[in-house]
């Protein structure tokens, strides 16, 4: 009797399952994001201090959430790959990294565009901005390391080790940049004692966060499917070359 993860972990089974689930997740993401945007622009009131600019929050916070969540997922996949040696975990880690980097980049860009009208500057060396910037560099490092090693299985293992080093270092980096004072507003959604943000703004925010998460899942599934196909193509091409060489050898004899 196989467990669900074991059945999912078979690449062929994964292709079948993800193929049938993908359109539904993508559709759900589109609907949820559309509803979230409607709430964000037509229902949510402008912030009494920041005015309309606070509407940037509805994309900034989901991007920042994904920036962190995706790194955690990459680290978990890396752990799964190193411990269980399962290729699908590597496919998951490899394809999530560029997506995570993109969301981190967007969190930085939208945050910067929010900061200019609110704080009067595009960039401050505040604790959260700095730690998200360093998170972005960690993503870049993962991509650079993987692309710089020709042997693919070696690149996978080394990148997995780097991802685990990164997840150990991240809290320390976070702690160190928090050491100074911070200009950023303190955490207002996930905190002890309930959110400090008004429901009228919290609802669209949560809807958008859900929509972005669904969208990431859909994109990740698609990227994993592409990667599995890419590996099949490469394996088949290798087999073809080997076959051709073998027949050449046979002909020469």
């Amino acid at each position: 009797m196989q467990t669900l993860t074991q059945r999912l972990a078979n690449p062929t089974r994964f292709m079948e399952l993800s193929g049938s689930v993908l359109p539904w997740i993508a559709g759900a993401a589109a609907v949820v994001i559309a509803y979230g945007l409607y709430l964000a622009f037509y229902v949510a009131p402008p912030d009494y201090q920041q005015g309309e600019t606070a509407r940037i929050m509805y994309i900034h916070v989901p991007c920042a959430w994904l920036a962190m969540a995706v790194y955690a997922m990459v680290a978990m996949s890396a752990f799964g790959f190193l411990v269980f040696r399962h290729p699908l975990a590597d496919v998951s880690a490899k394809t999530a990294v560029p997506l995570g980097a993109a969301f981190t980049f967007l969190a930085l860009v939208t945050g910067s565009l929010w900061g200019r009208p609110t704080w009067g500057t595009y960039w401050v060396w505040d604790a959260r901005l700095t730690s998200v910037l360093i998170l972005f560099f960690l993503y870049l490092g993962l991509m650079a390391l993987r692309s710089s090693i020709e042997d693919e299985s070696l690149a996978s293992k080394l990148t997995a080790i780097l991802a685990l080093v990164g997840i150990v270092m991240l809290p320390i980096i976070k702690f160190s940049v928090d050491f100074g004072n911070t200009l950023h507003q303190p955490a207002s959604v996930l905190r002890v004692g309930g959110p400090t943000i008004d429901t009228a703004m919290l609802t669209p925010l949560l809807v958008m966060a859900l929509g972005f998460t669904l969208m990431f899942v859909a994109m990740h599934f698609k990227a994993m499917r592409n990667e599995i196909l890419r590996r099949r193509v490469r394996a088949l091409q290798l087999a073809q070359v080997e076959k051709a060489q073998a027949s050449q050898l046979a002909a020469a004899e």
């Binding site: 402008p46 005015g51 309309e52 600019t53 509407r55 993109a102 967007l106 860009v109 939208t110 565009l113």
Partner: peptide
């Protein structure tokens, strides 16, 4: 009506649409 800083809001949403659309 997004007020005096509308361009920043549009730029932020535009960046998200461009990057995610590209992906």
């Amino acid at each position: 009506d997004l007020g005096p800083h509308a361009s920043f809001i549009w730029a932020a949403y535009g960046a998200v649409v461009a990057v995610i659309g590209g992906l």
